[in-house]
Write a protein that binds this DNA or RNA. Structure first.
Length: 414
DNA sequence: CTTCCACAGGAACCAGCGGACC
DNA sequence: GGTCCGCTGGTTCCTGTGGAAG
């Protein structure tokens, strides 16, 4: 329980802290001026888009692959923005740009839609119409109606519309590839305008799910983003750290530690930045003058704990009960056998008036929990006294309690 | 050497459910 | 609006097994 003295103390430390200059610069949605080690991808995407525009033609559709945190979204935004800035005509809307080529004027409009938030056909069309200045109601119209309006307003605009669909796999999971199919075919319905689609995904096998027709038209050009290695991550972090932190507050080694930790997990720049930011925040809370490697280690634990809690929270009920059984036995100092865990589990289940699963199933659940690292199960043979797994809790008690605290039935057990 | 414990874990099967299809 | 179908998560039944005890 925080007392007022605690809070005073915290406030005093925070006001004294002088760690961050601008922590927003470490957020994943911040778009930096420079994208180190993505020069090739930027160039390639710019080339794909620009050279046809200069000839007055429609650029090919592009499919962009790469793991999370490899800079796909940032590069796309960067290129679209660059298009505007370089050829922008001091336009009222920042999303629109005029591009002169030879004699005729081509009007280019760009947008990027995140399919995680706009994850239905309706909502995406609605977002696209919004960019073109047409407001439609949240609901009430049919998708076909929106589509018709979309065509209509596009024709009126006489423009090239470059649409980037970020996290496109989310859309396909939820609503299939019908809209995608229509969008890739839309140019045959248009005479005075053109549409170019950029599909962005981190799912490398997404192609297998796609309608082959969508696959071929969306994949006219493909761009693959390789993961960053530790050195590249270091460059990225250095640049951001300069913007985000006060000069000299980072201990030497902090950045390279963040980079190497993140590089271990498929070179995810977002994770590296998170690590650095959380380390900074921990240092700030402590009232420290500097961010040290130790802060990074604490940050790693923090981030991992959050992940663990989330994993527990989303576990099915019976898996949670098994986990709690292991926890209770562990608290009594018992490294429990499968049989003991099963007994404990049966008692818990009875107390909330449910039918227990069979031991066979519980044995599988234990293996699953072992696999995701919540418990540790070691197979032991006690000769005459049988063969069993010895199961212990593999996570901090705090994370365990945090993970079950919002289910009152379960939290009553601990 | 044999026995036998206390399970591990494979195989087959089944209920329920969401989605595709007519 | 029925039906078919594949998937998930469960059950039943079963065989396999390392090593202390006898």
């Amino acid at each position: 329980m925080p007392t007022s003295a605690n809070i005073e103390d915290l406030l005093r430390r925070l006001s004294r802290a002088n760690i961050f200059k601008d922590r927003e610069k470490l957020r994943p949605d911040y778009l930096p001026e420079n994208l180190p080690h993505r020069e090739n991808q930027i160039l390639r995407l710019a080339e794909i888009l620009l050279s046809p525009i200069a000839r007055g033609a429609r650029p090919s559709n592009v499919f962009i692959y790469g793991y999370t945190g490899t800079g796909k979204t940032a590069v796309t935004k960067h290129v679209l923005k660059w298009l505007e800035r370089k050829w922008g005509y001091n336009n009222t809307s920042t999303l629109e740009t005029f591009l002169y080529s030879r004699s005729d004027v081509v009007r280019v409009i760009t947008t990027i839609v995140n399919c995680r938030t706009e994850n239905t056909n309706y909502r995406i069309l609605r977002a696209l119409l919004g960019v073109l200045g047409v407001e439609v109601p949240f609901t009430g119209l049919s998708v076909a109606e929106l589509y018709d309006r979309f065509i209509e307003v596009l024709e009126k605009n006489e423009s090239l519309f470059v649409v980037a669909l970020d996290e496109i796999d989310q859309l396909i999971d939820k609503s299939g590839d019908e809209l995608l199919y229509r969008l890739t075919r839309i140019n045959s319905e248009l005479t005075r305008s053109k549409v170019t689609i950029i599909g962005i995904t981190n799912s490398l096998n997404l192609r297998d799910y796609l309608d082959p027709r969508v696959k071929s038209s969306l994949g006219e050009e493909e761009l693959v983003f390789p993961p960053y290695n530790a050195l590249e991550l270091e460059d990225i972090l250095k640049e951001r750290a300069e913007l985000a932190f006060q000069p000299g507050v980072l201990d030497p080694g902090v950045i390279s530690l963040c980079a190497s930790l993140a590089a271990r997990e498929h070179g995810d720049a977002r994770r590296a930045l998170d690590l650095l930011r959380v380390a900074g925040e921990i240092a700030e809370r402590e009232g420290a003058q500097k961010v040290t490697e130790n802060h990074v280690k604490l940050a790693l634990k923090d981030i991992e704990k959050d992940k663990t809690v989330e994993v527990i929270r989303t576990l099915p009920l019976h898996s949670k009960l098994v986990l709690i059984s292991v926890y209770l036995l562990w608290k009594q100092g018992i490294s429990a056998s499968t049989g003991e865990v099963y007994d404990m589990y049966c008692r818990l289940v009875q107390r909330i008036n449910l039918d227990p699963l069979t031991q066979r199933r519980v044995s599988d659940i234990i293996s699953e929990l072992d696999m995701i690292g919540l418990v540790q199960a070691k197979l032991m043979s006690k000769g005459r006294y049988g063969r069993t797994k010895y199961i212990t809790l593999a996570i901090p008690e705090k994370a365990m309690l945090e993970g079950i605290k919002d289910d009152s039935r379960l939290s009553a057990f601990v």
